[in-house]
Design a binder for these strands. Structure first.
Lengths: 352, 352
DNA sequence: CCCAATTTCGAAAACGTTTTCGTCAGCGAT
DNA sequence: ATCGCTGACGAAAACGTTTTCGAAATTGGG
């Protein structure tokens, strides 16, 4: 390995001086500066991150705890998009991303915090970690900057970011209402995730705001997967009195429900209207194309990155709760009960 | 930070001894060993990866160069699945994954190799890197273990893994043939990626094997995206003599083509048969459900991991070329021209 | 020219480990 | 008693940086 000493020798200066030009210190003459730079380039020298990190206590890397297939066994492409956007931003500031393996805390005896310390990461990004994970408690007391998404982690240096799930859910119900629907069912989240909880809240709020009746038999629960949406729909289809529209807390469940509806000999979007949440890639390709509440993934990643950068830069920055707006995407899966001459728009509203 | 010296002091031994018990050296008595272990646990001590890495020259991390939106601007969920599977395996051996930011080598002046050296990664995993990237040349000469997927990187320590793209493409064409199709079009890859190239090769081979005519006007090119599939299909639809079936080198292009076919007033899977490649998640939800050649993502990740682990463990291991088998997934998008009483299977062949 | 101020440079300590090698004690065999 | 082993331990060097602080060299003002 070529070290700082090799350069020093060739340049006829001390290692200290080399270090200084590499780090942009001002107290070195232009002449030696240029000489050192030239030799550095010629040798293709790269500083050792380990050695540097040892003394600076920083690694220029951000630790990521990312539970892809969460406890209920599905993969959420959604989170990948957030991460990609996140990395774009922090990458501009020179940070690389360290993805911890074996994320379930069972395998990481000392929990998230210890592993972060071990690697000397400068910050932490949490996605898809179940809020019940016991390893989280050590994090809330940690002094390492953290941003988590969809996980209401509170701590002195931990900010938390999520879509406006309550507002989004309310918009979904209001949209159905505006299209003449009064009997509105709901398929929620069995696991009590934070987003699931908030969307349920939004549903209930909207019901109240619109003076719509709460019908327990129209409420089902699922686990965000296509299969669970199918199962939930089956139960609703078995009812003698059915809702005219249903709000699903995830697109995949709505898509599963479409299958159930079709199997019952009915037409989704015609006999029963559906609206989802997320706007997964699939939503626009399914028939009928799914009307949904889009989560702005790029914006989520971007804001998470900006927040974490700021937390890392400024040790006195207090944590925040960041909410990013959702957006109604109208496609073809909810029927307008008021207007006969409704037109089905094949276009995606708001897509640029 | 609690260091090895803190433990040593409390245990009344030297730092050397502590280090030895932490690393399982045999020359320490059971008594002191247990004492040290107990104190270590009590203090929640975690060794500094930087300090350790500085002396051992290993980091217990694997660098990942992963170009998500590749030069032609699409995201491939496919690669995420491979990475997840890869990480599961290497994680068992204690490796974490370091994702480099700013992957396009323009931003990484000294290229992949220098960045890997900088971080002291023990191995490298490459996905989605265009084979034209100038930064690759330094890698082929590198002595750091590398596994790349879909990129025929050769080097003394670099193995390369891909689906059996030739065989898969041949199977696709043969399957169309078995269903009575003789006029078989092709939508290939404009960018000359290695997989695209191999699938084109497979198409040509199959044509020869089956003594089918090569019709230049039935060959189009795209960039793997839905939009480009749509465009390619438009051109083919404009022809006076159309093929009865088309093989697309990616599912997304086939899905785009479906849209074009429908807009032309025809029915995909009925008037024109389609077969794709990849088996993306979407494929089973689109109508008609897309018949395709599945790439075994889990297996790819798993084999890549095993190969890299072995390269890292054994400095003398020669590199290999690893091919993983594809699998025909029959759905509803190719019509059987031979049998009138064909049955459309809604089931996905081979899904567990 | 002299002194003070300013530039420019380098010695040395520090960061937290691992690893080599030597020391020392104890012990069994002669 | 002596010798040689073995088992247990520690001193010290090394890994490649950064950073502090003092020394030396240069400059500028009078």
């Amino acid at each position: 390995m070529t070290t700082i000493y090799d350069i020093a020798r060739q340049a006829g200066v001390s290692a200290t001086t080399v270090s200084k030009v590499l780090n942009g210190y001002p107290d070195v003459s232009v002449k030696t500066r240029e000489k050192v730079q030239q030799i550095t380039a010629a040798l293709g020298y790269q500083p050792s991150a380990a050695a540097r990190g040892l003394v600076t206590r920083r690694s220029m890397s951000i630790g990521v705890f990312f539970q892809d297939r969460s406890s209920f066994g599905f993969r959420h492409p959604f989170l990948h998009d957030i991460i990609a956007s996140f990395q774009d931003i922090v990458g501009e500031s020179g940070y690389d991303l360290l993805f911890f393996s074996n994320v379930h805390s069972a395998n990481t005896p000392h929990g998230f915090e210890a592993r972060a310390r071990h690697r000397d990461v400068d910050g932490l990004f949490l996605l898809g970690v179940p809020r019940t994970d016991p390893g989280l408690s050590s994090l809330s007391r940690s002094r390492i900057p953290i941003v988590s998404v969809d996980l209401d982690l509170i701590g002195s240096r931990a900010s938390y970011l999520a879509s406006d799930n309550i507002g989004g859910a309310r918009n979904a119900v209001h949209f159905l209402y505006e299209n003449g629907h009064r009997d509105i069912g709901f398929v929620g989240d069995r696991y009590g995730t934070k987003p699931g909880h908030d969307r349920t809240l939004g549903y209930h709020q909207a019901l109240q705001e619109l003076s719509l009746p709460y019908r327990a038999e129209w409420i089902q629960e699922g686990d965000f997967t296509e299969a669970s949406g199918y199962a939930a729909m089956m139960k609703i289809l078995a009812l003698r009195e059915r809702p005219t529209a249903i709000f699903f807390v995830s697109d995949m469940m709505a898509i599963g429900a479409m299958r159930a509806i079709r199997e019952a000999g009915l037409t989704p979007g015609e006999d029963i209207s559906l609206i989802g949440f997320d706007d997964v890639h699939l939503a626009q390709y399914v028939t009928p194309a799914l009307t949904t509440i889009r989560q702005n993934k790029d914006e989520m990643g971007r804001l998470a990155a900006i927040e974490l950068l700021e937390l890392m830069r400024n040790p006195n920055k207090p944590p925040s709760v960041i909410t990013v707006e959702t957006e109604l995407v109208v496609r073809d899966s909810v029927k307008n009960l008021l207007n006969v001459d409704q037109h089905r728009s094949g276009k995606v509203a708001g897509i640029s």
